[in-house]
Design a protein around this nucleic acid. Structure first.
Length: 357
DNA sequence: AAGGCGGGGGA
DNA sequence: TCCCCAGCCTT
């Protein structure tokens, strides 16, 4: 280990001891179940956003056995609004795996932890170090940024070479007898001091040897190469009502919002008004032979996702008879809150008092 | 190796 | 608008 590396680790631990006042409910937690829950919730998610979800899950499911025994729909309802819903599905699968195949005891080696669904290198290292003090360095967005800046590394962090390089460096910096504390420190440091925008370099205890700070590279590091393409989609949701029944289905396609529910969807490749929509093939296929009256047409709402812009419009139709619609089931309006919906739909439901949340 | 997957906050 | 957030899985 060079002098820069020793300086880095020592100063970081010192900062943690003397200046780090970041507080979170899972910090210092030793129960691997609770640590795991927090880590899954926090994947690609800001602490402030995940915090209330963590509290809710712990309160509903204090143990992994209780989570494993929960109905899937109930768990998705608790996850509703948090995004990246595959995490929820995988989390439940892992909970059931632990209760069924690990005797209800959370696995305690890095490899066993990492083999659980939804747990990759970062989460495995976090659980292994926090719960069991095993010497595995975490490598998350914070760590990439702190290391790239301090050591002046411009290898793209979203490349294979970059991942390998940063993983090796991170591991070499880890004090193997103090993994939990060190891992917590570097992430807190990245979140509080070495922030993405306007880092607090003036108060930074690492500044003396920080390459980015000395070479004016703060805003250039870390380097990312991939740029995402945002595509536009137009969702026309038919809220088909018969008395107090509304038709919904679970999304199963290889697409966004998998395992969440939605109304009758007619997706079009451009903005479409109600008249044009009625001649759309999908509309005719679903509703062509059913007499209906148009009750309400909403304004178009826009939801910006990372990789898609969703324009959605809600059209309320009323029918006199209870039709059979391929793939959709009628649900009583009061029962809608038993199902998980994507944000764009819950927002509509709230605004139109169709459901109490 | 690359692309897909949510939602929200801040610049 | 764009970027980032305690990343992971699939192809």
């Amino acid at each position: 280990m060079g002098s820069g590396e020793i300086f880095f680790t020592e100063k970081l631990l010192e900062w943690n001891k003397e200046q780090n006042n970041r507080n979170m409910p899972w910090k210092g937690e030793k129960d691997p179940y609770r640590i795991w829950l927090s880590e899954i919730i926090l994947q690609q998610t800001r602490v402030e956003q995940g915090w209330p979800y963590y509290e809710r899950f712990i309160s509903h499911y204090p143990t992994v056995q209780q989570l494993a025994a929960a109905p899937e729909e109930e768990v998705f309802r608790l996850w509703q609004g948090l995004g990246y819903y595959a995490r929820c599905k995988n989390m439940l699968a892992a909970a059931r795996d632990i209760t069924e195949n690990h005797g209800g005891k959370f696995p305690s080696t890095y490899e066993q932890i990492k083999s659980l669904k939804g747990i990759g290198p970062y989460t495995a290292a976090a659980i292994a170090s926090f719960a069991f003090n095993l010497p595995h360095a975490v490598l998350d967005g914070n760590v990439y940024r702190v290391l790239a800046r301090f050591f002046g590394i411009d290898t793209p962090i979203d490349s294979h070479a970059g991942k390998k390089q940063f993983a090796g460096l991170a591991q070499s910096l880890l004090p193997t007898d103090n993994a939990a504390s060190y891992n917590q420190s570097i992430m807190d440091f990245g979140a509080v001091v070495c922030k993405p925008q306007q880092p607090a370099c003036d108060d930074c205890p690492l500044q003396k040897k920080c390459v980015a700070c000395h070479q004016q590279l703060i805003s250039l590091l870390p380097v990312k190469t991939k740029k995402i393409q945002v595509k536009k989609r137009y969702f026309n949701y038919i809220i088909l009502q018969h008395n107090d029944n509304i038709y919904i289905r679970k999304r199963t396609a290889n697409d966004i919002w998998q395992n969440l529910h939605e109304f009758i969807l007619v997706e079009t490749d451009s903005a479409t008004d109600i008249t044009a929509l009625q001649s759309h093939a999908m509309f005719k296929q679903l509703l062509g032979n059913i007499p209906f009256s148009i009750e309400k047409v909403s304004a178009v709402s826009k939801q910006q996702l990372t990789h898609q812009t969703i324009f959605s419009q809600f059209i309320t139709l009323r029918v006199a008879d209870l039709p059979t619609l391929n793939g959709y089931i009628p649900v009583q309006q009061q029962q809608l809150n038993n199902y998980a919906f994507p944000k764009t739909i819950t927002t509509y439901l709230e605004r139109n008092s169709l459901q109490l949340f």
